[in-house]
């Protein structure tokens, strides 16, 4: 299927659920859906378009909101499904019931951005290291890291 055909089909199938559909490059489709429609859209993509492969989930800190992009791909097209969550209450539904391989990336999301993934099957706290302090999310833009002082052993020669 060509890109144009897919876009038409998507518009017909998902009409109201897709807030925005862009096609910046051949084979690359960027869809945007409301957080509430995420599962429905993913389900449709999986069942009707053969989207079984999730490459990864990207989180982006956009200041007021967090943007999440699900990078799906089929042999013909890449579907990038994005949604935006308010920073005040960053909750998103887990898609691991549809795509089991997604858990890994959802936990990554929880860890790095503090986005809460609802109904994630494995909700163990994910920390960078065992002694990582609670409530610190390194990929948020307002999180800054202070460099430790480097002491070079063995004095000046």
């Amino acid at each position: 299927m060509t890109d144009a055909e897919i876009i038409d089909r998507l518009k017909a199938d998902l009409g109201g659920k897709i807030v925005e559909l862009t096609h910046p490059a051949p084979r690359r489709l960027f869809l945007k859906a409301a957080p509430g429609d995420l599962l429905a859209v993913t389900g449709t993509l999986r069942d009707k378009y053969g989207v079984v492969f999730l490459s990864t989930i990207t989180g982006v800190d956009k200041g007021e909101t967090f943007e999440i992009i699900y990078h799906f791909s089929t042999p013909e097209q890449d579907f990038n499904l994005r949604t935006e969550l308010p920073r005040a209450r960053p909750h998103v539904e887990s898609i691991s019931s549809l795509i089991p391989g997604a858990v890994l990336y959802e936990r990554e999301l929880q860890d790095m951005f503090g986005i809460v993934v609802d109904h994630i099957p494995d909700a163990r706290r994910l920390v960078l290291s065992d002694d990582w302090p609670e409530g610190q999310y390194p990929l948020r833009k307002d999180w800054k890291h202070e460099r430790p002082v480097e002491v070079i052993p063995g004095g000046e020669s």
Binding site: P138, H145, E150, V151, P153
Partner: peptide, 10 residues
Amino acid sequence: AYNILGGLDQ
């Protein structure tokens, strides 16, 4: 980087 403590001699 936030998860790096520096070189080994640290």
